[in-house]
């Protein structure tokens, strides 16, 4: 199992593709992790880990839910 979550790197930081604000993860993100940009409220999804890249998350679909 990977220890990536515990590795101390300088920053888990990336630019928001929507508004350019910097998006910071408290811990090393996982592929598929979603977060919200504090600048523009866009929902972002991690699509690549190295290099760290986020894209706009897909829109909510009709059958999505709890």
């Amino acid at each position: 199992m990977s220890n990536a979550a515990n590795t101390v790197t300088t920053s888990h930081q990336v630019e928001c593709p929507e508004c350019g604000a910097s998006v910071r993860f408290a811990r090393a993100p996982l592929a598929g992790e979603v977060t919200r940009c504090t600048g523009c409220r866009a929902e972002l999804e991690v699509t690549s880990l190295s290099p760290l890249r986020v894209e706009l998350a897909p829109e909510v679909q009709e059958d999505w839910g709890e």
Binding site: M1, A5, L30, A31, G32, E33, E45, A57
Partner: peptide, 16 residues
């Protein structure tokens, strides 16, 4: 999963 939200993260932590 199809995306990792806070819930999935917490479940992974509990497994770990």
């Amino acid at each position: 999963h199809s995306r990792i939200r806070i819930e999935e993260r917490l479940l992974i932590d509990a497994l770990t």
